[in-house]
């Protein structure tokens, strides 16, 4: 054998990494990215003659936990049929023993990159709303995402907003999870093992709710996703990574301070929106929005220039809002009063 040059070594590393697509309908095109437990490739589906994305487990573990988790991820996504969630087409095991699934190939950019070209707050809020909708849908189906962050949101070329990477999603409905785990064995390469849905603490600092960061698996629920949505909203509005709120951050006032000063920089966010972030990112889950829908309502109210639930306005702010909303009638009354005053003055002259 020849000496392995750097070039050959590089090639062999790719060869050893590439999924073995022999005996499948897919042909490898290129590697698109790598996540926590798998890599995503662009492949051509020779049967349907289209391109799809194929996610494959990169390094299987000895007791198949990761393989089971990936199958479960595919099944969770498959049951969430929503325009904001990438549809799964196929799931199985490759000849090299690795579990894979295929999904729609989305062309676009990650949120953190796409957002750079969006300057208007109203437009950013509309994007945020589109992120909330699939999350609300998933919650309605008993699924929580647990890793919402800009890198897991894709903005398509036609403005479609997709929530990706459900790799650490959790099914809250116990009967559904039992149904999922009992049917994975035929997709696995080797021995099957019992699988639990509680698991290791995974997530991303800044976007992880305090209970998630503290590793309290049983306390993680829809409210943890609502926290992450609050952090995402903060990122969308400020362009800065959100501060990590911990159990030590006891008061709402302190959270507001953290949302105002990030890494020594003062962040300028409209006051009502800052309060929406603060409410969503409350330390205690019961102080957060009760549902994603309630959070969306506050965003809609802000966009419609109405009062929001997260912030109690004072009398001046209430009056200003009233004048702003009723400009025509207020103007009419003011004009009448001025004319009347002028008439009185004129008659007295």
């Amino acid at each position: 054998m020849n000496w392995l040059s750097d070039k050959m070594l590089h090639h062999l590393r790719e060869v050893a990494d590439a999924p073995d697509l022999s005996n499948t309908r897919y042909q490898l095109r290129e590697k698109l990215g790598r996540g926590g437990m798998g890599s995503v490739y662009l492949v051509a589906d020779s049967e349907l003659q289209r391109q799809v994305a194929l996610k494959v487990l990169d390094i299987p573990d000895q007791d198949n936990h990761l393989s089971e988790r990936m199958i479960e991820e595919a099944r969770i996504i498959a049951r969430l049929e929503h325009p904001g969630i990438v549809p799964v087409h196929d799931v199985g095991t490759l000849s090299d023993g690795r579990v894979f699934y295929t999904m729609k190939y989305v062309q676009g950019e990650r949120l953190d990159i796409a957002i750079k070209s969006v300057t208007a707050i109203s437009e950013r809020l509309r994007i945020f709303r589109k992120i909330c909708e699939p999350v609300a849908f998933a919650h309605a189906h008993g699924v929580i995402h647990r890793d919402l962050k800009p890198a897991n949101i894709m903005i398509g070329d036609f403005g479609e907003t997709l929530v990706m990477d459900w790799g650490i999603a959790k099914v809250l409905n116990q009967s559904s999870s039992v149904e999922l785990k009992n049917n994975t064995s035929h997709l696995l390469p080797a021995k099957d093992t019992s699988r639990t849905l509680s698991g290791t603490i995974l997530g991303t600092p800044g976007y992880m709710a305090p209970e998630q960061a503290a590793g309290e698996i049983t306390a993680i629920n829809q409210q943890s996703d609502i926290y992450a949505l609050g952090a995402l909203l903060f990122f969308l509005l400020s362009g800065e990574p959100p501060p990590q709120i911990t159990r030590a951050t006891t008061s709402p006032k302190k959270i507001l301070q953290l949302l105002t000063q990030v890494s020594g920089k003062t962040v300028n966010i409209p006051k009502p929106l800052k309060y929406i972030c603060q409410k969503a990112m409350s330390v205690s889950p019961e102080n957060r929005y009760s549902t994603v829908q309630a959070l969306i309502s506050d965003i809609d109210n802000f966009l419609d220039d109405m009062a929001i639930s997260a912030y109690k306005e004072n009398i001046i702010e209430l009056s200003l809002r009233f004048f702003k909303k009723n400009k025509f009638f207020v103007g009419l009354i003011l004009t009448y009063l001025i004319l009347r005053y002028l008439m009185i003055v004129w008659l007295n002259v």
Binding site: R13, E14, E30, L32, D58, I59
Partner: peptide, 10 residues
């Protein structure tokens, strides 16, 4: 180690 030595991130 396996993740480091196999392939290359795009």
């Amino acid at each position: 180690e396996a993740r480091l030595i196999l392939g290359k991130d795009p």
